[in-house]
Each structure stands twice: as structure tokens, then as C-alpha cells.
Design a protein around this nucleic acid. Sequence first.
DNA 1: ATTACTAAAATACGAGTAG
DNA 2: TCTACTCGTATTTTAGTAA
Lengths: 218, 218
Amino acid sequence: MKPHLLAALKHIALIGGLREPVSIASRELGTALGISQQTASQRLLELAKEGFVIYTVLARKGQVKIAAKGVEALRREHADYKRMFELAKEIPLRGVVESGLGEGAFYMRQKGYKEQFRRKLGYEPYEGTLNLRCSGGTLANLEILRLSEGIEISEFVSGGRTYGGAKCFRAKAGGIECAIIMPLRSHYSDTIEVISRQNMRARLGLKDGDAVELIIVL
Amino acid sequence: MKPHLLAALKHIALIGGLREPVSIASRELGTALGISQQTASQRLLELAKEGFVIYTVLARKGQVKIAAKGVEALRREHADYKRMFELAKEIPLRGVVESGLGEGAFYMRQKGYKEQFRRKLGYEPYEGTLNLRCSGGTLANLEILRLSEGIEISEFVSGGRTYGGAKCFRAKAGGIECAIIMPLRSHYSDTIEVISRQNMRARLGLKDGDAVELIIVL
DNA sequence: ATTACTAAAATACGAGTAG
DNA sequence: TCTACTCGTATTTTAGTAA
């Protein structure tokens, strides 16, 4: 994302464009950014064209709301600054239990993955994943992980199908050693998959909607 | 700060320039930012000229370290993103007790301030301040306060001298109601002054070097 | 009041290149 | 190799202005 677009996007976020459509005059935006009304107007159009915001002008007043792509870009920035100033060996993540669609278990059954987990994690995980949906401040920490290296799980081919690569991070939740796994090729997601030697759901007595805190150990 | 300069500064921070001088080739920086070697070189020169970094080229290799002004700019950004995603009514601050130079008490004795505190805070504070030096992640929260409104304390003139304006935020520390006070006209500082109805140092049995956590209530 | 077009002015960029 | 200069060009910005 181009720096000057980011600056405009950031300003829109700060006046509330993340939550709801805000009305902003191009002159106002211009003044805030130290640019002319004309340029500010252009910035809004550009942001909209690139899909960062939804921009409509109603009754001669611009209304702007940050789109998913814009939120993602801002979260990336947030994660960068967090990493810069709050770098730590332990990263907390909070999330809420969600039922998956069972595909987690399907992947965990594949030999190609099982083998790698045993070698790289030191154990063969239970055949099922715990899905956690994160929100709020925790999402920025997720973003830090996305930018970190982690333990590499390579892609492999089996039965004419390619199973994609992923990366793992060791973690602890409720005293249980576990790991989270992130697919390498995937778009933004606010849910993480937790694997462990044991069935975490049963072990911790979790049901959908329960909050779980886990600590990633880098 | 101009957006394109910020982008370069941020990249330098992410490769460790906050902590120590890092060696970076202009081509490298250029590739990372999607600009040419020439432009990247110019960015470094510009950052140095504006005082954001200390830049020296030794044996044909650029060495760059982020200067105080650069750190400040980055912290501002960090605070913006924090505010955007982690906005809360309660902001935690952690700091370590430091002895002041007694000027805090001098100011607290001035009628012009005392009067305003009584009116706007609801009590007349103890004539002395508790100084806390903040560090780490807490500094970003301090920055949030710097950008927030707070309770305004106006400047006034007395005895031919002008006493500057300030802003206050209500807070709680160790169960005691207190407030932090920030001068309006002042440069970046990592220490805050806490005032309260009581002598907090005595009341909480604090001595230099003790850690204190307080919660700002916006 | 607005937004946003066009065209001119200002600025930023990178190729070439010296040190 | 490296940095960083000059300079022609491309891009960006803004003034003027229409809608």
C-alpha cells in the first residue's frame, strides 16, 4: 500500500470510519493531512478504487467507511508497530471456541502432516483441532504471528492432491502444551486452529462460546 | 511527518534501528519500499537532515540508528493504531517511582492551580506530586493520553510570571483516587506526575524504584 | 456549501554515472 | 561493490473552475 494512501486511510480510521460510515469533507481531510482539497478528493477516489474504503457522495457530502481490505491494511500496520515496541517472547491470544466443520480433523489424519508434526513438534497431535475466533486487541497479535517465522510444515502431494504448507507456533493453554497452526496460503482470517497431543475440548471441558486464553511461545 | 519518510523510518525500526545502529544498503531499503536505490538513498539523507535518524556511511556502507525524534514519531503512530483498535475507557499505565526535584510541589502550591483543581477535580490535591517513569508498552498508552482531551487546566499569570496550562486525567492507583497531570507545552517525556488528595508516597508506602500500576479512567 | 474536472506548475523519481 | 550527484522525464499536486 502506498504511503500517502495509508496516511489518508489512517485518518479516516481515527475519525471512526472503522465502525461506521463517517462524513468527511475533502477540504477537512486535506487540512488534516496537509494537502489540498483537490488532492484529498483524489485520495478518497483512489482509496475507493483500490477497495480500501467504500466511498459515496450524497447530497454533496462524502461518506466513507473502511472496507475489509482497508481494515486488513491497518491491522498490518498496527502489528508492525506492536512488534517494534512490544516485542516479546510470549504473545497472548484470546479467543472464543467455535465449532469447526470437521475439516481440521481431516487434515490432521493425513500421513504427510502427522509425520511432520511428530518430527517438528515432538508428538503426534490428537486428530482434531480446536477452533478459536479472535477479536479486538488480540487480532494484532495474530498479525504478529503472520509476520513471524514459526515452525515450518511443508506442503506435500498425496493421492494426486496437493496439501498446502503451514506454520506452527508452540503455545500453552490452561496448562496444556499445544500449538497453533496457520496455513501459509490463506487470506486474512480471525480464527486459529489449535492442536495438541490431547483432545483439548474434552480435556479443558470447553464448549462453543467459551473464552480461551493461550500464550504463544516464540 | 511526511508519509514517504515515515515508511522508510518504519522499515529501519523493523530491522532493529530502534535499539542499535543497523547497516543498510540503499538498494536494500529501496527494494523493501518498492523504490529505486537513488530514491532510497535520498530518503536516508532526508531522514537524517530532519533529525529522525543518525546516518553515517562508513566504508561505503550506510549505518543508521533512529534518533529521539524518530522514536517519538514512531510512538505517535503506534499510539494512533492502538487507539484505533484497542480503544478502551480504562487505560493502564505502569511506572517506577522516581524522586522529583520538588518543583511539582512548587507548582501545586500556586493558588491559580489549586483553585482549578478544586473546581475541576472536586478536591484540592496534596502539595506534592508522585513522579512515575514509564517504559515499554506503557509508553504507547501515555501517547494515547497525549492525544486525548482530558480535563483542562488553564494557564494564568501571577506575580509577573506565566504559569502554563495543563491537562488532567482521573486515575486510580492502589485503590486511591488520583489524577495525572500533563503540561500542555512540553516536549516528549516518559515520566508522569500523579496528584491526589493524599500523599500517595506515604499512603502507599512507596520508595524510589517501586513499581506502581495505575488505571486512567477516560 | 460541496465534489472533482482539466491544465499548468511543482515535485519526485530514476537513469546514468562519478567518486 | 558502495553512496549520492546531476538532470531529463514522469508523476503528483494544486489552482481555477464547472456542476
